[in-house]
């Protein structure tokens, strides 16, 4: 790369370096494979293998792992049924993939010395923008010009519309940003905090027991946040899909 960045290995921010493994270019586009890319494929492989292997026995009475796979499936299926309704069935594979990708990336990032794909705004904004483009596309193809009525709330006086419509439009375009920043901020904050406390453990030697206990507790909290943020990202996707399909606020 032309830019030569350096970051101290001991810095809590070092864990967020994407870790380029080569310098591939494709027609001016930088497609260098990195630790980040490796973890993305890791998430894909783990999610797929988990679902395929746990259902290989097709047991009538599910074992523990098969139950997890079934719960995972029904969790998303119910979420779609409840937020969108029967019309959401079409988008089940997309929503399921989205949730699985995020939750797997988040959880893989919890392993020691690993890398958290979702702690990068580049990743979360790409995911959020694909949801934004998809929902807008669905809204326009389903409702045509009627889709613009989404920005005009009912029962507002004409004079107020000059103020309300810009706010509605801004709100709509703020969606992918808040959608992506929420995930990015949560993952970054959590991992930075863990690394900072990890530094304390090393520095304090014998007295590092206290921050170590804190790290254990924080790790538990971070695992919960990893799952919760994947859930939040997914349910917001469902709500946006519902808006586009049913054209209601």
């Amino acid at each position: 790369m032309s830019v030569d960045r350096h970051i101290e290995h001991s810095s809590p921010m070092h864990q967020f370096v994407i870790g380029r493994l080569n310098d591939w270019q494709l027609g001016g586009l930088d497609i260098s494979f990195s630790k980040a890319a490796a973890f993305m494929f890791g998430a894909v492989i783990v999610a797929t293998l988990f679902l395929v292997l746990t259902t290989s026995r097709r047991a009538m009475v599910p074992g523990r792992w098969q139950s997890v796979a079934e719960l995972w499936y029904e969790f998303i299926a119910d979420m779609i049924k409840e937020t969108i309704g029967s019309e959401g069935r079409k988008y089940f594979p997309f929503v399921f993939s989205l949730f699985s990708f995020i939750v797997m990336c988040n959880l893989l990032g919890m392993l020691p010395y690993s890398y958290t794909v979702t702690s990068h705004i580049a990743v979360t904004i790409t995911l959020a923008l694909s949801v934004f483009v998809l929902t807008t596309f669905i809204g326009i193809t389903r409702h045509g010009t009627q889709f613009l009525s989404f920005f005009v709330p009912k029962g507002v006086p004409l004079v107020m519309l000059f103020l309300v419509v810009p706010i509605e439009v801004l709100s709509y375009f703020m969606r992918p940003i808040s959608h992506s920043v929420r995930l990015f901020a949560n993952m970054t904050a959590g991992h930075t905090m863990l690394k900072v406390f990890g530094g304390f453990v090393v520095q304090m030697g014998v007295f590092g027991v206290l921050p170590f206990a804190l790290i254990v507790a924080l790790t538990g909290l971070e695992v919960a946040i990893a799952v919760l943020q994947a859930y939040v990202f997914t349910i917001l996707t469902c709500l946006y899909l519902n808006d586009a399909i049913h054209l209601e606020h």
């Binding site: 930088d30 497609i31 980040a36 894909v44 990708f101 990068h120 580049a122 990743v123 995911l127």
Partner: peptide, 12 residues
Amino acid sequence: FAPQMVWLVISF
């Protein structure tokens, strides 16, 4: 940004 987005799209 670019390499991450490229591999994200491919892996997703």
